[in-house]
Amino acid sequence: MTPPVDFQLLRAQQPRFQGLDPGHRACQGCGQALAARLTLEAAGPDILLANATGCLEVFTTAWPESAWRVPYLHSVFANAAAVAAGMEAALKAQGKDVKVIALAGDGGTFDIGFQALSGMLERGHDVLFVCYDNEAYMNTGVQRSGSTPHAAATTTSPAGVARMGKRHLKKDILAIIAAHHIPYGATASVAYPADLRKKVRRALQVDGPSFLQVHSPCPLGWGHGSELSIEVARLAVQTGLFPLIELERGALIGAMPIRQIHPVTAYLKLQSRFRHLFADDPRAREELAHLQALADHNIETYGLHAESPDGLDSEGADTVRRGGLRSA
């Protein structure tokens, strides 16, 4: 009979920074919860967080409880970047060496929070803005956002006799961010935790504003099993639909090559938001072809085709190592 484990003690001894405690109320398999946890692991304790309204805020701060072990402020939906800018200004005035991270969903980044974000970037605040991109307004029940992919069905872009889901394209937010000429901007994915943490560290090292767009599947909103969150996120990368790239001052400095390029259908078929694209319908076939073309375009634009299947791309890939040491 082994003695009972002191979970509390063991939890306190975990060899990583734990900024986000369990007991939070994220759905099973929540990509955003994972992304936030990984972000904080890389960022460490010396940060202030400004969080936009959204799932993350709701599931972490049901008063009197909080899952955060770092200073945290949620104000409203649209102002995470501005609140973060205020924090940064204050810390600068006080001469404190503490980093500020703004956290927002795609609604709080692409749409309602965009103006504040653009202003913060333009003014050059030393703030890392992290967008947990789950491609719709999930907190309010899966309504389409500027980030919702083309042809995805949401409750405000449903599929029906006259419509094949969202009629518009996913906004290329990183290109817009790049136009601000900020020191560092990148995309990341929960499917590549080491890459994500590396990018958080890199972003926090730069002086000035930085931006990270983290693809974070929502099992409920995307319509896939909770165990598939990473699988789905990985396929988004491996199909070319969500390229993992890094920009410095707006210029492309790195892209994670895809070792094995999958057809977009491999990604789409796992999610019920794209179910209507698999109907026996010429419009559905056209939309599938459209999405494939978008992926092909990304692959070409960012040069995502891996040169060889060997370990050339191991810096970003989440190759596991016996005994826990990852490559990044």
């Binding site: 400004a50 102002n79 973060a84 204050a90």
Partner: peptide, 26 residues
């Protein structure tokens, strides 16, 4: 002082909120 010329009143209020919570008079 840190004089932040924001892009909207919405952000002006948000900046002073963030600054005050970070411990500054705003």
């Amino acid at each position: 002082c840190e004089f932040v010329s924001v892009e909207s009143e919405f952000s002006a209020a948000s900046v002073v909120l963030g600054a005050a919570c970070a411990g500054s008079r705003a």
